[in-house]
């Protein structure tokens, strides 16, 4: 028999250094892909118009947001409002859906978690990948819309996925903290959708950050999403580059949440199985 050199120590509390949690997850990347792929293929197998829906959704959302915020609420932006709002929506939809699914992952995969071991963080990361595909498709819709409206496409458009990846990392951080809590306390399942909705209004998704009163600008510097949303617009059609502080705050939030998330996740993951 070949020795695989695996050596596992089971203890009440993990004592290995944190980076080993990360390497374990890295070794399980095939599993992350499989979970993501499973999600994608099931999504399109189940829904008859599954694939079509991925295109339709950003179109419909853009139309509604444009009607409500541009025609009714008369929000002013530099440039074309549909293009403006779709840039924000792509990132926002990706972020909010990933947070929602990431936080719910432990509850959703309860049956597997209680019967088999694998690095648990894999199921939290997986929805970030399957949703990423939808976001990339929505980017195609954006390009089509820009061509249609005659908006000049910035050469930096290839950086849009980078902002999406940053939003994904931020969402992974949030999910690592919340997912085990949501598995232990069902209250979170009620609070989270509400908080996500609140976050949309607190972020420059359908309005420009420049239009907020001066005494509130600090808030948009602290909000980790505003830098990313503005970054999307900068990359797409050369809107103003986000304030450096906003991007710094995004980075700090992401690092803080991911590291803190890995810590709380390791503390809670052994216990939460008994409470699922």
């Amino acid at each position: 028999m070949e020795k695989t050199g695996h050596h596992i120590i089971i203890q009440p509390q993990q004592s290995r250094p944190l980076w080993e949690d990360i390497t374990e997850l890295w070794h399980a990347r095939a599993l992350v892909w499989v979970f993501a792929w499973r999600e994608i293929s099931v999504r399109y197998k189940q829904a008859l118009i599954g694939f079509l829906w991925v295109f339709l959704q950003p179109v419909i959302m853009t139309a509604i947001f444009t009607f409500v915020f541009s025609h009714v609420a008369k929000i002013q932006v530099s440039g074309n409002y549909p293009v403006f709002v779709l840039c924000g929506l792509i990132l926002w939809q990706y972020f909010s859906r990933s947070v929602f699914e990431g936080c719910n992952a432990m509850v959703k995969e309860k049956l597997i978690i209680t019967k088999i071991y694998f690095p648990r963080a894999a199921i939290i990361v997986a929805p970030h990948i399957s949703n990423f595909l939808d976001a990339l498709i929505a980017l195609l819709v954006l390009v089509a819309l820009m061509l249609l409206t005659g908006t000049a496409i910035s050469p930096m458009i290839f950086l849009m996925p980078v902002f999406l990846v940053m939003a994904g990392l931020l969402s992974i951080g949030v999910s690592l903290v919340i997912a085990p809590l949501q598995a232990m306390y069902r209250d979170f399942a009620i609070i989270m959708p509400f908080l996500i909705q609140l976050a949309m209004f607190a972020s420059p998704v359908f309005y420009p950050a420049t239009s907020v009163p001066e005494n509130l600008t600090w808030f948009f510097m602290v909000n980790p999403l505003s830098g990313l949303l503005e970054g999307m617009r900068w990359a797409a059609y050369g809107a103003e580059f986000p304030h450096a502080l906003a991007l710094v705050s995004t980075a700090l939030w992401t690092i803080g949440l991911c590291v803190g998330g890995l810590y709380t996740f390791r503390i809670l993951q052994g216990r939460l199985v008994d409470r699922l």
């Binding site: 695996h6 050596h7 596992i8 120590i9 089971i10 203890q11 071991y117 216990r271």
Partner: peptide, 21 residues
């Protein structure tokens, strides 16, 4: 416990090899 689904309250277990459960 041996397949690492849930963590023990006390004690320890050492496994030398890949575990399939």
């Amino acid at each position: 416990l041996l397949s690492r689904i849930t963590a023990p309250t006390t004690g320890s277990a050492e496994l030398h090899g890949r575990v399939g459960s």
